[in-house]
Design a protein around this nucleic acid. Structure first.
Length: 336
DNA sequence: GAACAAATAT
DNA sequence: GATATTTGTT
């Protein structure tokens, strides 16, 4: 509060943000009484005592302190993100969370612009939270509060789901277990429970899709329909190099998966160390980006549309080369 | 403790 | 009703 927030690469955004702020002249000083003396006397309201800047500052600190002391304060909700932020494995996908204290609005899942109700946690934002009021006034309370809080509701955006599917595809549906998926996804704040739940749903979806082989996904499968349905043979996977799964710690790079049935696993999954921070398509203020209904299956299914892989440097290129070595060019990839 | 399925909550 | 979370069981 009152301190300058340093955001790497966010100066443009800050400038834009600041441009939208009222000018100094537009603001009513906190030290100024809200009720003019004439009105106060007319309505027999005891006049407010004149506040000095000292009073204002004290009030601000009190407010911050009280907010930090409340377990429901949003900043404490995100402690897991704060903890992990400086890890070597930078988050590659930003996740969307719902604040559990707010009433859930159906529009929120479609990217409503109200920051109070829908918050996209970005590393920069985490930094800003960390480096402002929470750091100055309520560091001690934060960890304790976070332990008692329920985790905010995770929104499985198409991007997040896509990464999920990529990991599952890499592991093979049979061997894809929540913990391993969670580790390979390398998304901060994503819990095993989150993954387990989503995996449960995903398996049901896959089962359903494989049951009705010819029919497309139902109208209710927006998210899952945005990603390929794995073939039956997904239940058995091994890499072209003769190894099974990538170790959970992702120490082995470039593992390609190919099951014995000859069906290639679509994508080599980059281990966390090799992942560049993936600029995730974000929920824009108008809520259009990332809304399943607005994302064409072709745009998501086709790996040529996976523009974020263009951000991968040499490592990913080499992995693609390994895939070629396995005879699995991108054009060979199944579309299910 | 992890995985899974079912129940429950939003 | 769809989806995410929680809970119970293995």
């Amino acid at each position: 509060m009152g301190e300058e927030v340093k955001i790497d690469g966010g100066e443009d955004r800050m400038t834009e943000w600041e441009a939208g702020l009222p000018t100094f002249d537009d603001l009513t000083p906190l030290s100024q009484a809200l009720i003019p003396p004439e009105l106060a006397s007319a309505f027999k309201i005891s006049p407010e005592h004149t506040r000095t800047m000292v009073d204002v500052n004290r009030a601000s600190k009190n407010t911050i302190s009280s907010l930090c002391g409340r377990v429901s304060h949003p900043s404490s909700t995100f402690k897991p993100f704060l903890n992990n932020h400086n890890h070597q494995n930078e988050p590659s996908v930003q996740i969307h969370v719902m604040e559990e204290t707010e009433t859930e609005d159906p529009d929120l899942t479609q990217g409503g612009s109200d920051p109070k109700k829908f918050r996209r946690m970005e590393p920069e934002e985490v930094d800003s939270v960390t480096h402002t009021a929470t750091t100055d006034y309520c560091t001690d309370d934060r960890s304790a509060a976070a332990k008692t809080l329920k985790r905010p509701r995770l929104v499985w955006t198409p991007q997040l789901h896509k990464r999920f599917v990529e990991v599952v595809a890499h592991l093979g549906l049979k061997d894809a277990v929540p913990k391993t998926i969670m580790q390979l996804m390398n998304v901060e704040g994503l819990t095993r429970e989150n993954v387990a739940s989503h995996l449960q749903k995903y398996r049901l979806y896959v089962k359903r899709m494989q049951g009705l082989s010819n029919d497309g996904p139902s109208a209710s499968d927006h998210l899952f329909a945005s990603t390929p349905v794995p073939p039956q043979s997904f239940n058995d996977s091994s890499s072209c190099s003769g190894h099974g799964n990538v170790a959970a710690n992702g120490s082995r790079g470039g593992g390609n998966s190919e099951n014995h049935g000859g069906m290639p696993i679509p994508m080599p999954y980059p281990p966390p160390q090799q992942l560049m921070p993936m600029p995730m398509m974000v929920m824009a203020a108008n809520g259009h980006v990332g809304v399943p209904g607005n994302m064409t299956p072709a745009g998501i299914n086709g790996y040529e549309a996976h523009s974020h892989y263009n951000h991968y440097p040499q490592q990913y290129t080499s992995m693609m080369q390994q895939q070629r070595d396995c005879g699995k060019l991108d054009s060979d990839l199944p579309r299910y």
